[in-house]
Computed example of a mutant assay.
Amino acid sequence: MNWSLMIHGGCGAMRPDRLPPEQEDRARVGLSAALDAGEAILASGGSSLDAVEAAARVLEDNPAFNAGRGSVLAADGRVELDAAIMDGRDRRAGAVAGLATTRAPVSAARAVMEHSPHVLLTYAGADRFARERGLDQVANDWFITPERRAQLDKVLAAGGAFDADIKYGTIGAVACDMAGHVAAATSTGGLTAKRWGRIGDSPLIGAGTYADDRAAAVSATGLGEAFIRAVAAHELAARIRLTGARLQDALDAVLADVGTLGGTGGLIAVSPTGEAAWGFSTPGMYRARASAAGREVAVYSEPERR
């Protein structure tokens, strides 16, 4: 079997003439480091579940991305973190939403999957569960960067309306290991200036995250409300399992359906044979993939700068 790993660092208005070179370089370095973490596991015969968690944790700790440290701020000036992970072998899944003090949300999601009878835990209860499982805790300020604070100020000054130009998006990872098992993980800080306990698609199994050895592992990024309404990640897998659609064709069709609901964003997916696919409807998407055949890191839709 061929192992395969694909990751994303969110999508949005990233254009060569608008994205500062130093910001692009930080993102590329971060994506490469996440590939290193996941590839080390998969190339040595490790599991897809371990690989997606390891890759996601690297991205969560990197302030270049909207997950973990460097997440966007809610309207009250705090960070609220969401994550999910899913094992394609038996469709076990775990998710957390509204975390405020748990350093590694994706690991908290895995703990929910493996050490609780539940799938989704939220807010103070989710942090309390993570503490009880011995996961690292930090002050909420630890997640906040000056750049994200400035973004919140800009949005609030404009009346609180969402500004796509400063949304960098979710992070995610999908993988197929040498045994042909797939897994998916997604993590995010959500939307700048979000209110009322808003939760997007990332921690919702079947919307922003899904994995099934009968079809594919999927992670989404973009306008979460549209991905929820489309049940996008599950829909992609269902098209493969029920109609025999090709992975890329299924991904493209689901992304088009998200568009009919007024949403933009991106999807990454891998199949149990190691085939990989990605697509996005925004100017750019931070993304990377690796397999025994090599690796690639990309940002824009046009030919990549090397």
Rank of each mutant, 00 (worst) to 15 (best):
E132D: 15
L121P: 01
R128N: 05
T145V: 02
V106Q: 06
R148E: 07
R103T: 10
L121C: 02
H115G: 07
G159N: 05
D165K: 06
E132N: 14
A109L: 11
L121N: 03
V174G: 07
R110G: 04
A126F: 03
V119R: 06
R148H: 07
P146E: 10
A158L: 07
A157F: 05
L156K: 01
R133I: 12
V119N: 05
L156E: 05
D177M: 04
A173H: 11
L99A: 10
A109G: 03
A109W: 13
V155Q: 10
G94D: 08
A126C: 10
A158C: 03
A95R: 10
E114V: 02
E114P: 08
D136Q: 15
E114D: 12
A157C: 00
M113S: 04
A104L: 14
V174D: 02
V138A: 00
Y123G: 12
P105H: 02
P105F: 08
W142N: 09
D163I: 11
A108V: 11
F162C: 01
V155Y: 09
P146F: 02
Y168M: 09
D177E: 00
A161P: 06
L99F: 03
R128L: 12
D163G: 07
R149P: 04
W142F: 14
V155K: 08
G125Q: 00
G125M: 11
D141C: 00
A150R: 14
I144E: 00
L120H: 05
A150I: 09
A161V: 08
E147S: 04
D127M: 05
E147F: 08
Q151A: 04
A161L: 09
G160C: 08
D136Y: 00
D141T: 13
T170W: 02
C176A: 14
S107N: 10
F143S: 10
A179F: 00
K154F: 00
A130Q: 12
S116E: 07
A111P: 00
T145M: 06
A150P: 12
A175Y: 08
K154D: 09
T122K: 14
E132T: 12
A161I: 04
D141F: 03
M178P: 08
A109R: 00
A100W: 01
T122Y: 04
A111M: 13
Q151G: 06
Q151H: 11
R131D: 05
S107L: 14
Q151R: 10
A150Y: 03
L135Q: 01
L135V: 07
T102Y: 01
A158H: 10
T102D: 03
G98M: 05
K167A: 15
V119K: 06
P117G: 07
A173I: 12
A173Q: 11
G172S: 13
A161Q: 05
L120W: 08
P105V: 03
A95S: 11
D163A: 12
L152P: 13
Q151V: 05
A161C: 03
R149K: 13
A108W: 14
Q151Y: 09
W142E: 15
V155C: 02
A150E: 15
R133F: 14
P146T: 04
A150H: 12
T102K: 07
I171W: 15
V96S: 01
